[in-house]
Amino acid sequence: MAQVWKCSGLRWSADGPVLVWQGGRRSALPWGKHVAFGVAEGGVRTCVGARGNACAAQAVVPGRSTGARCEECARLERAHSVAADTVADDARPYRVYLAWFGPGLTKVGITAVERGPARLLEQGAVCFSWLGTGPLMAARRTEELLRAALGVPDRIPYAEKRAVRSALPPTAAERAAEIERLHGRAGALGGWPESLRPEPFRPVDHVSVFGLARLPAAVGEVRELVAGGAVRGDLVAAAGPDLHLATGGGVVVLDTRLMAGWQLGPVAAEGGLAVPVREFRRVPGVQEGLF
């Protein structure tokens, strides 16, 4: 593998998903694109660092880690994270939102106004609506109020999101129904901070953006990349950090966060997956594992 790059992650642009590489190179991912890359022979996965700085120890990290950071860099990254509730002096305005990922999978969260819907695209939200806008701490208090009063979480595991993407209700109105009910209940609650301005219910649907209409059910997901391994498949959908790739054995989901920290390069387009894949169980008692 003569030429190698390191992936900085999947980003969502106005034109759809884009893979970003160290050094600024970008790879657009239109539907139908054949995705093919290999992992350097004899390579190891190293920590991606924190806050834009390289890891001083160049520590080796596990293949199955979606964070791709050593303990020290993960601590530094989290110390400056709004999501971890460690930042209290951010003067930017924030929005509180309700996001829906599938039947029974709704969460509440906050994001900076300047980021627009980017956070919702990054999480793979199938549809969402804003709830209110205001200072960070007011948004935080509102998020906690809604979690307690409505019984909605602030996190949903990606495994649960992936499990329902191919079986979503067919219309945007049906997909928005759950957050519409919760939005109405939230607006009727007392105790909202005075500095938070309520927002009307205006659902935004991402099924077309993600390519989820008529999405075939996935047969499995990549567990990790390995030295000398290869990934090949045609892109049929993408949501959050996940690429849904059509392979000879069916659609397999690749969480692009697993790519970070590896040296990757081109491989022949022909061939299949040569990385560990976890098969999605269809029948109780069937052993997991495609390979």
Rank of each mutant, 00 (worst) to 15 (best):
L146H: 05
L105M: 10
A112L: 01
A74R: 06
R78L: 13
A173I: 07
C55Y: 15
Y158M: 15
A173H: 11
V113S: 12
D85M: 06
A118M: 10
A159I: 14
V152N: 05
V164Q: 14
G187W: 01
A99T: 04
P103Y: 02
L121Q: 03
P103S: 02
V87L: 15
E143P: 07
L189D: 12
R92T: 09
V61F: 04
A79C: 11
A91M: 08
L136E: 00
T142F: 08
R155H: 14
A68C: 15
A112E: 11
R75W: 05
V61I: 07
G104W: 12
A148G: 12
S129M: 05
L182G: 07
W100N: 05
R92V: 04
M137E: 10
S129C: 15
R162V: 10
V96F: 14
L136A: 01
E114F: 08
A91I: 13
A56M: 08
E122K: 08
G190C: 03
V96W: 03
R175N: 14
R69I: 05
R181A: 15
R92Y: 03
A68N: 08
Q58N: 12
L76Y: 01
I110T: 06
I110F: 09
W192H: 15
A59N: 08
Y94D: 01
G67A: 13
L76V: 12
V164N: 02
R155Q: 14
V60A: 13
A188V: 14
C73D: 02
R141W: 01
V87W: 12
P170V: 10
V164M: 08
D154I: 02
A84E: 13
E72W: 09
F128V: 05
G124K: 03
A139G: 12
C127S: 12
L121I: 06
P153N: 03
V96A: 06
A172F: 09
V164E: 12
R119E: 01
Y97C: 00
P157R: 14
V126C: 05
A167S: 14
T106H: 08
A88M: 15
P93L: 09
P103H: 13
A57D: 06
G134T: 04
E160R: 15
A112G: 09
L146G: 01
